[in-house]
Amino acid sequence: MSTPTTTRVALVTGGSGGIGRAAAKRLARDGFAVAVHYAGNRARAEETVAAITAAGGRALAVAGDVADETEMALAFDSVRSAFGGLDVVVNTAGVMILAPIETLDLADLDRMHRTNIRGTFVVGQQAARALRPGGALINFSTSVVRTQLPAYSAYVASKAAVEAMTLVLARELRGRDITVNAVAPGPTATPLFLQGKDEATVDRLAQAAPLERLGDPEDIAEVVAFLAGPARWVNGQVLYANGGLA
């Protein structure tokens, strides 16, 4: 049964870990009721929900493959049924597999494109149908779209598509009072980033930015909170949150 509320409501895809978890907790501190989405790690999503509720917030976990329109329609419906509406969608769910073009397994290319491109399209489509006036959709790109490092070609291609979809959807939602932006993090200390990298590589990337450190998930969550809340005049943009890397 729907529960009417004036509380702002956010859905965070990929909210079970990394940047998604930090964003969910940050929005909860701002007073949002938060739906923590997960694809496979239910236990981790429930931990995020428990952390939010323990701090006095409202949260629930919702499941679904971001690239499956039926599953995501059900997830969006569950959020609106539980909290009475939807105001912000933060789409952090993504896959990153690194290899040179010459050797990349095309199955890995297809996997990244399914989650990063089709998944962004499906979530954007659902968000466009569900968000209330005053709402925001926040997609996720990567600073490697600018830095163009070797071995990132397939991942960068998928995220460049995310940026293009973000800008187009912002224009398609003219007159709806809904902003659509993307965040492009630099090297950030998440499992997705650290996976497969040796200590020397991590240290080198940490020193690349003028601030000489890796980003924390909480650094990126602050950008999300800005776009979800006060940044009503920022629309159709890609915000590079990378400590000055590029």
Rank of each mutant, 00 (worst) to 15 (best):
101 I>E: 12
188 T>W: 05
190 T>M: 06
158 S>Q: 09
180 V>N: 03
141 S>M: 07
95 V>H: 08
172 E>G: 07
93 A>P: 02
195 Q>N: 13
141 S>F: 03
90 V>S: 05
103 T>V: 15
181 N>Y: 04
106 L>K: 12
159 K>L: 11
141 S>P: 00
105 D>N: 14
141 S>L: 06
133 P>R: 04
140 F>W: 02
153 S>Q: 13
194 L>Y: 04
144 V>A: 10
192 L>A: 08
190 T>F: 08
132 R>K: 10
122 V>K: 00
135 G>H: 06
175 G>E: 07
168 V>D: 09
198 D>R: 14
119 G>N: 06
185 P>A: 10
171 R>T: 03
181 N>Q: 05
88 V>C: 10
129 R>Y: 06
137 L>F: 15
122 V>C: 01
176 R>S: 09
136 A>D: 01
123 V>Y: 04
162 V>K: 05
176 R>A: 12
155 Y>C: 04
185 P>F: 09
162 V>M: 07
131 L>C: 04
134 G>Y: 03
155 Y>A: 05
89 V>I: 14
110 D>E: 14
111 R>A: 15
182 A>H: 08
171 R>D: 08
121 F>G: 02
170 A>K: 02
134 G>S: 02
93 A>G: 04
143 S>H: 06
183 V>H: 04
123 V>H: 00
94 G>D: 00
142 T>G: 04
114 R>P: 00
195 Q>E: 15
121 F>P: 00
111 R>L: 14
127 A>M: 06
118 R>H: 12
122 V>N: 00
197 K>N: 04
110 D>S: 13
167 L>K: 15
177 D>C: 05
110 D>N: 13
172 E>N: 07
195 Q>K: 15
193 F>C: 03
131 L>M: 07
108 D>R: 12
117 I>N: 07
135 G>W: 02
187 P>T: 12
